[in-house]
Nucleic acid binder design. Sequence first.
DNA 1: TGGTTCACG
DNA 2: GACGTACGTGAACCAG
Length: 929
Amino acid sequence: MSSKHLYLVDGSGYIFRAYHRLPPLTNRHGTPAGAVFGFTTMLWKLINELHQSDGPTHLAVILDASSKTFRNEMYDQYKAHRPPPPEDLVPQFPLIRDAVRAFSVPCIEELGLEADDIIACYSEAALAAGWQVTIVSSDKDLMQLIRPGLDLLDTMNNRRLGREHVLEKFGVEPEALGDVLALMGDSVDNVPGVPGVGPKTASELIRTYGNLETVLASTDQIKKPKLKQSLIDHADNARLSRELVRLKCDSPLPEPLDGLELKGLPPEPLRAFLEDMGFKSLLSKIQGDGPATLPGGGPTMLALAPGAEEKPAPVVEQVPFNHKDYETVVDEAALDRWIAEGFACGRIAVDTETDSKDPVRARLVGVSLATAPGKACYIPLAHVGDGLLSETPTQIPMAVAIAKLKPLLEAPDILKIGQNIKYDMVVFERNGGIRVAPYDDTMLLSYDLDAGLGGHGMDELAKRHLDHACIEFKTVCGTGKSQISFDKVTLDVATEYAAEDADVTLRLWQRLKGRLASEAATRVYELVDRPLVPVLADMEMAGIKVDREELARLSAEFAGEAARLEALIHAEAGGPFTVGSPKQLGDILFDKMGLKGGRKGKTGVYSTDVTEMERLAGEGVAIARLVLDWRQITKLKSTYTDSLQGEINPATGRVHTCFSMAVAQTGRLSSTDPNLQNIPIRTEHGRRIRDAFVAEPGKVILSADYSQIELRLAAHMADVPALKDAFARGDDIHALTAQEVFGEVTRDTRARAKTINFSILYGISAFGLSGRLEVSRAEAQDMINRYFARFPGINHYIAATLDQVRSTGFTTTLFGRKTHLPWIKSAKQGERQSAERQAINAPIQGTSADIIKRAMVRMNPALAAAGLGDVRMLLQVHDELVFELDPGQVDAASEVIRSVMAGAAEPIVELSVPLGVEIGTGPSWGAAH
DNA sequence: TGGTTCACG
DNA sequence: GACGTACGTGAACCAG
């Protein structure tokens, strides 16, 4: 007798039952997780029963891959009236897939088949092989499969359902159940059945006449006139229903039976998942060394055989890239086919092609879609001929395509997958009013999994994960002066390039998504980075108004000032030269004028940077001060007052930056085209540029910034009582440091203390500090020693952080964001030390980034809830958020903004220091500070 | 294209 | 005893 026992979990059915049975639990992130919890508990319990009599030796979770199946071809009304899943259940579906992966259990879904059919196929195969089968479900359709060797397990009521159960409930043998179900119909699935026939009648009819066909053939014997007529009138419906409830058991198995073997339970992915979800009660079961149990469960299989912790390689289809297989979609029927395919698959990769890298200017040129590896298309929409050789090709009209794509891109049950999907969101919103949702972003998946291990652009990811070299943009559009916009690319070339992007995106998603849970990145992805995408898209589209005339006035003024300074510099130098050339300046200063100074760097040029020039200026060298002033003025002019005028979008009259989400190694955003995160403020000249960032007429600018957030986080993370108490009291933290390190608080010691505090955040060295404070190394070392003595905890934080990065290769923020630092093991001292300093800084800078991102994600809903829906968030500058609003909204908005920002860490992280938020308002950004 | 400098947090 | 020396960005400019 075979001892093999296959358990098939009806995942979809279970999810719904768990959802309705359990109270609306939320996990530690405030995300609904009741169904996930029920599911996780059930799966755990099942796995625990491995090696018990009647316990599973093989296990798989079966899910519905799509809402459309072969039954829809039989009957287009099948499941047509089924309401969409409840709103708080939808986000739990992906988490349940994560749970299955965390258990290292196969998760099987197949296009065009319902979970029930897949279960039937596996049951058939397993029984044929002499195995026992248990289906974890209490679905009546699945009860058709009951026979010797196969039963159902109803985990909700903890009972096994066999032949007796079917007899009791339906009055017939399981083999006849399909006929009963066909007569009954099913209002939920919209199986028609025969009107007026319920379970009782159906059962009696089958018992009396044997099967459906004999019932339909024997209507003349039926006494009740209404029933008789109904059976006659709806015989066809009954036959259709019979086919609809029949389970398809002859499809090939997506995974061979042996692939479902249940091995132990690798604890790490599971631990990561449970921690991530905050399932403390379950987590406590796997902590400690003793055999863990669940209430009512047996011992877990956490004690693994040696080597068993090796994670099996994820099963990902390896389909070769064949660009000729991509389809160019130029007629509506083909588009309809692709859209239907997207609905059937449940998820689809999407990419847009446009005529500009700037999404706020870009016009949509085409859309590419991918539904499976190698299966992708390009839908050209605005391609034109080149005016010489080619003519404008026939394409689907833009409005028609948009109208057809919109339902797919906005369908709440269809996942849209993009690479840097923020770009596509902005393009779709502006070119068709489409709000893409729900979505995944492969760039962000990579960023949250692999920050520090390389870039996250598609070409690089394709190389790294798929060993595939993408067609480069420049080979399609050229480069430099001869570059053409994408709408001039011929359709065949455009299709190969664009469809490949969607294809690659889908394949990357398959590789990356499954790693989230097992590598503990779900939290930061789902609760921080992914939800931030539409928030940033809105900010980019909103832009900020700048006063062009004011910038022009400043440019003219700075030009005059620069010319004046340049003349003075040339006079001092004894002749004209290019002041902006560090090489020429160095030669003038240190060779021609004979000033003291040293060579620096490999290139052999003299250093003329700000510290060197300040040193000379301090020694009374007149030209040094003039050069510094000249540099500041020309910098401000070229980078800001000149360039910014050209960045004003003619259509909106505003400046629209682009926020990059996957550049900074620590989790911070960055800003480009133009960079609005480095607008001057520190000098008087610079501040005037910030004054040119103004509110629209009738509005005001509000700026809210975290006060000393990184130092507060350091106090919390390093657990420094003196610092935490000072922050709790609202003391001047630099004065406190001055008191502790120098014994007195003066203007000078406070300034030095401030420098020391920053040094700590950056990974201090005595040499570096000595340079900045202009004291000897010994004195600097002395200050550091006193700092560590007065603030115990800092030392320990540094040591513990370095320990962690050396053993795991990455640091983590309080929210679990990773920064990988592979150089930590470098043989070169310099590289290694650099990585060590990064390791000390990354958790602090990264936690700060996580917190403000969470504030941003929560901001618009909070404002809307307070009736402040038209307050617009415009910019983020690392610890500052900038808004534009009506003057009358300032007081109410300030309170909402303050409370969202101050509470942004909660409830995931409870900080032992308060987060201070300072708010200012005014007609301009400069005035709001 | 790489190096240098400097604007911001 | 020598080594190299503060974290994270982006943009403009010069020079090869």
